[in-house]
Structure formats: C-alpha cells, structure tokens
Nucleic acid binder design. Structure first.
Length: 423
RNA sequence: GGAGAGUUGGCAGAGCGGUCGAAUGCGGCGGUCUUGAAAACCGUUGUCUGUAACAGGACCGGGGGUUCGAAUCCCUCACUCUCCGCCA
C-alpha cells in the first residue's frame, strides 16, 4: 500500500509513475487525495471537540472531589451535547477512513525508474543470458514423456487422488525433489539466511499484509470452515513473521529462507503451456526474504539476483534474466527480475524465479518498521525471491540432460540424491 | 468435541468509574563510580495521529453500549491458556 502522505505531496509524480504500468485511473489518485483532505479536516474538528469534552470531564471530577456538587452539576448539564456531536464526527471519520483505505488498496506500487515501459511479457527487457542451450538428439522428448518413461512422476495418479495439477513423485523422482530442497536450503543458509518452517495456512490479515488479499483472492485456496488460506508462496507466512514488528536497526538485514509447498488455484489455465510440470496447483519452492534499510534495498535486490543466478549456474542450466516491464510486473512490486531457464525439448524459457523489491509497499500494510538514526520510526523495505521453484527446474534438468543412457543428475545434486543417473 | 480461566507498555505484573498512557520489577538507553568490566546509584525509555514547532487527539484483544467521564461496569466477537476426550 502506498503511503497517503506521499501521494498527497507527490500527486503528479504518482500518476506519472503509475502510467508506466498502464495504470490510468488518475481519478483514483485524486479521490485518495480528496478523501485524505476531508479526513484530516474532520479529524481536526473531532479532536477539538474531544479536547473540550475532556476538559469538562476533568473539571467535573475535580469539583466532585472538592465536594462542589452544584458547580459540577452545572458543567455536567453543559457537557451533554458533546457526546452526540463527537459521535457524528467520528462516525463520519470512520466512513472516510474506510473509503480511503478501499481506494488506497486499489493502487499498485510505483515502478522503479529503471522499469521499462510496456504492456506484456514481450516488452520485458532481457538483462543477460547465461550458458549454452544444449543441442538435443533427434529423439529428444519433453519432460512429461520422460517422467513416465522413467516412472518418476505419475500425473494420472495425482489426478485420481486430488485432481489435475497435483503430481505424485515416485522413487528417484521423489528423492530428486528432496535433494533439490536440501541443496537450496543449504545454499541459502550458507548465504546467511535463517531457515524457518512457517505454517502453510494463513489467516486473512497475513494474506492482506503481503498483498495477496484483496486483489488476488481467487488465486488462493480458501478453507471456508476455518477461514484460512493455503499459502501460494512462503513469502506470505515468512514476511508476516515481522508484521507489526519494529526491527532494531542493528538487526538489519533480516534474512529468512523457507521451504514450503505452494498452492495455487490458477483458475482458467489450460492448454499446452501448462502441460506436465509447467504449471501446477501444488509445487515445492524455497523462498528467500529480506527486510532491509530503505537506502540499501536496491543493492540487496542485485545481491539476491546474483544469489539466485549462482544456483542456476551451479545446476548448470542455461538461463536468462529479465527486467519486467511496467505492464508485466506484479501489483506490489517496484522492480522485479525474472529468471528463466531454457527448456531444451519444449524449446522455450520457463520462469523459475522472480526476485522483487517491494520497497515500503508491503511494509506499510504489514507495519514493519525500524527506528532510524533520528529516532523516528520508518517503514523497512521488503524483498523476496524464489530460490528456487522446483517443478520447472526439474523439467529443465530432465529435458536438457536427457541422453541415451538416461538423465544425468547435475554434479552439485549428486551428494544429495545419492545417484548420478535416472535410468 | 466438553468444562473452566484469561487477554494491560519489549517482557513480567498491579490497577477503588475521575488526578491512568497507566504502579512496580526486569530488560533497553544515557550518566556517576572504575584502569576496564560487574555491582551499586541517578536519569531516561510505548505506538499512531497532528503541528513549522508547541498544543491537541487516539490506543490497556476487536466491536458496540452505559456515563459529564471507562483499563475499570454491561453486551458481543475473536484469540490464548488449563483440565478432560481424541490424536501424528
């Protein structure tokens, strides 16, 4: 959520920035400014009235103590009107605050100055490409054929148990999953991230804090009887660990990592692009999250980007890094890098990580603050990234590393899998 | 699922309807003392809003009510804890 004060003082700039993500509801910005203006005016009136009422009440108390009952009664009689007036004003204030809040949550984050203009994926800027795309044999096949050929994933069985998009990993497939999770967690720990195991179900306040609610309600599975949401990413519970916390500046940077399954409804997605492991309703991911001093957040974003790339390099997967354009960036992000690996048999890039700086957009909702040098509390900047999401990494490993002999496991994973080949 | 207790500042824990944003202890910060540290002593120490700065306003789980006045009384919701039951 953007800060009202900022919008008030930088109205034109806000509109200009929002235009970069093709957000053209300039009236919304003006409505926010107007509502805020009204709110503050009513607030002032209400406060003045409350001050008078407080004074009277104090006087009455003092007079009563002194036994001056008559004088107290006189003031009491004159104080009767405050209650009704104050109630009217505070009711109005409540309405204004609610309206303001409703408008405010409709405004996405302001893109960073380096974000390219654009409307969709085709306008994203390729920052760099790394590694060589392997040239496969004539008979190379996509991963969904490899998984059944080697019996490591059973999609049909998952469909029977739950539904489409819930694969069952078996044998070396299951072990490879476990190996990747451990590999990613070990690397994160070496990079200074504290490992946590958060809940996989979160309440509404948590969903709101990181921005999934109310905007993307339909994306999450909702457990109605208990009014809880299955997490779409570890970002939600992990970032919310610091909701309403005032961080000590000495504790910066706060670096957290978590492995969790992720659940996404992805309603309305069908077709070839979502075959096999390309898009699932449940998948595994290791996430990294940082809470940092505002002055350092872009430096940290680059650091996180490098970290994610180091994983891809270790796995020896060809990848590219995109700087998302204004139109393709998530609602809450100010700058996002997407990492995509090359899927040799499908001949396409698959997104395996998204690293974002949310600046104070999330922390304003979450109320994650720190006490600065001046002694004033300020909002921290939050960042997160996938490091990494497993399914498409797996897809890429399977496709890129397929040989006559079987599928070669990347060297760094062998200590974790205990085998070198899926055959 | 059944029964009971509770929710107050970073933590612990007081709080007759008025002088309570809130005692006290611990912790934190600053200082005295010390070669240094510890101890002791002194001072200080919540958040939000608002102002150029003061002032002012709000917050004692959430919401509502009674009252001139509510942390304190009433209603309601949520959550936590304890015991029993069930259970990885």
């Amino acid at each position: 959520m953007l800060q009202v004060n900022y919008i008030r003082e930088n109205r034109d700039h806000v509109i200009e920035r929002l235009a970069l993500r093709n957000f053209k509801q300039t009236t919304l910005v003006d409505e926010v400014v107007a509502l805020d203006e009204q709110r503050r005016q009513i607030q002032t009136e209400s406060d003045a009235l409350a001050a008078s009422a407080n004074t009277s009440a104090r006087q009455i108390g003092e007079l009563m103590r002194q036994g001056k009952r008559d004088e107290a009664e006189a003031i009491k009689a004159a104080s009767g009107g405050y209650k009704e007036q104050i109630k009217q004003l505070t009711d109005r204030l409540g309405e204004l605050e609610q309206q303001l809040h409703e408008k405010l949550v409709l405004l996405p984050n302001l893109p960073h100055t380096s974000v390219p203009a654009g409307v969709g994926a085709e306008d994203n800027e390729v920052v760099l490409e790394h590694g060589n795309k392997p040239s496969l044999a004539e008979d190379a096949v996509p991963h969904w054929e490899l998984t059944s050929k080697y019996g490591i994933i059973d999609f049909e069985l998952g469909t029977k148990i739950t539904g489409a998009g819930f694969p069952v990993y078996k044998g070396k497939g299951a072990r490879l999953q476990r190996a990747m999770i451990n590999f990613f967690l070990d690397r994160a720990q070496q990079a200074g991230y504290l490992e946590v195991q958060p809940p996989l179900l979160v309440n509404e306040a948590s969903g709101f804090g990181t921005g999934q609610l109310p905007d993307k309600e339909g994306q999450m599975y909702h457990v109605g009887v208990d009014d809880l949401y299955l997490i779409p990413t570890a970002e939600v519970p992990v970032t919310n660990l610091y909701r309403d916390v005032i961080v000590k500046e000495a504790d910066f940077p706060v670096k957290l990592t978590a492995y969790t399954p992720c659940f996404r409804r992805e309603a309305g997605s069908y077709g070839a692009h979502v075959r096999g492991l390309n898009r699932l309703h449940q998948f595994d991911k290791v996430e990294v999250v940082q809470l940092v001093h505002p002055e350092r957040s872009y430096e940290v974003l680059e650091e996180m980007s490098s970290y994610v790339q180091s994983l891809l390099q270790a796995l020896d997967l060809p990848y590219r890094v995109l700087r998302l354009c204004g139109g393709d960036m998530g609602f809450t992000s100010a700058l996002t890098y997407d990492m995509e690996v090359w899927s040799a048999a499908q001949q396409r890039w698959l997104e395996v990580s998204s690293v974002s700086n949310f600046e104070s957009y999330q922390s304003n909702r979450l109320k994650v603050r720190f006490k600065g040098e001046s002694g004033k509390t300020q909002l921290v900047h939050t960042l997160n990234g996938s490091a990494l999401a497993l399914p498409r990494i797996l897809a890429s490993i399977l496709e890129n590393n397929q040989t006559d002999r079987g599928i070669r496991i990347p060297d760094v994973l062998v200590p974790y899998t205990g085998f070198e080949w899926i055959d």
